[in-house]
Design a protein around this nucleic acid. Structure first.
Length: 259
DNA sequence: ATGGTTGCAACGCAA
């Protein structure tokens, strides 16, 4: 029996949030931390800071936008940075293997608004992800897919479902795409552990949304069914959103008792 | 009220 702790956090600029991330690593001590929106070219990635903290890092970044990284206690192998069949300069995907678990860190496109081209790009991106995960799950029955999905799956994941109905992040096609991923053979760890809990992972910087509890649960940890049965804890560390100069997202954490 | 805030990097774009 071995404990395995994994987390996801959209940091909205790793340059700005590095002190927060390092402090959080020290406190939470995850085995793996998946980051999104690092907004850093690979040449500027602060590898040394993570090595000092006892972690290895793999990253796929770009200037100004997007960018993903996985911080890991064990040496990452089988690194992957693109979805098959999707020509895309945007750095949103980072796969690696930690121990014997396939980990896929995702920064799913935001989609902007349901009438935009970016929304179509998002839906197409999710379709390509679906096709890839179907195949990848055959190769890696022990698999965790986590990150900023930019989708709130159910009413319970939205502070005001009536207000958000039909809006990007909560539209029916996005929620269908999310459900389709689960149907490949994944479980949403947070919802499995906390069936009734209303907790959010993102609050807009504007309108005092955090203070007013106006959030959405759009950051997720999906575990393949065999792994999900070994998930013993999943929670959102809301405290990080209340600190000075926070990211607009909070870390989501899952703990497994592996056999 | 089509608002507001943050980050990047350049006076707008993306979230």
């Amino acid at each position: 029996m071995r404990l395995f702790k994994i987390a996801t956090w959209n940091v909205n600029s790793l340059r700005v949030r590095l002190p927060h991330v390092l402090a959080w690593l020290k406190e939470a001590k995850p085995d793996v931390l998946a980051l999104q929106e690092t907004k850093l070219p690979d040449a500027d990635f602060p590898s040394a800071a993570f090595i000092d903290a006892g972690y290895d890092a793999v990253f796929s970044g770009q200037r100004t936008y997007n960018g993903v990284a996985v911080i890991s206690r064990t040496k990452p192998t089988d690194i992957l940075t693109d979805l098959p069949g999707l020509e895309d300069p945007q750095r949103r995907v980072l796969g690696m293997v930690a121990g014997d678990i396939r980990v896929l860190d995702l920064y799913v496109p935001n989609g902007e608004s349901v009438n935009s081209e970016k929304y179509q790009y998002k839906l197409n991106w999710l379709k390509k992800l679906d096709l890839f995960l179907k195949r990848e799950l055959q190769k890696h029955p022990r698999m965790i897919v986590l990150g900023d999905f930019n989708i709130a799956p159910e009413d319970i994941d939205v502070h005001d479902p009536a207000l958000w109905e039909g809006q990007v992040l909560f539209s029916v096609p996005e929620r269908k795409a999310f459900k389709s991923l689960l149907q490949l053979g994944f479980a949403d760890c947070f919802r499995q552990i906390n069936p009734q809990e209303k907790s959010y992972s993102w609050w807009d910087y504007r309108m005092n949304a955090f203070r007013r509890g106006m959030g959405l649960r759009i950051d997720h940890i999906l575990a393949s069914v065999p792994l999900a049965s070994q998930c013993v804890k999943c929670y959102i560390d809301k405290s990080q959103r209340g600190l000075e100069r926070p990211s607009d997202h909070a870390p989501v954490v899952a703990e497994f008792r592996l056999t």
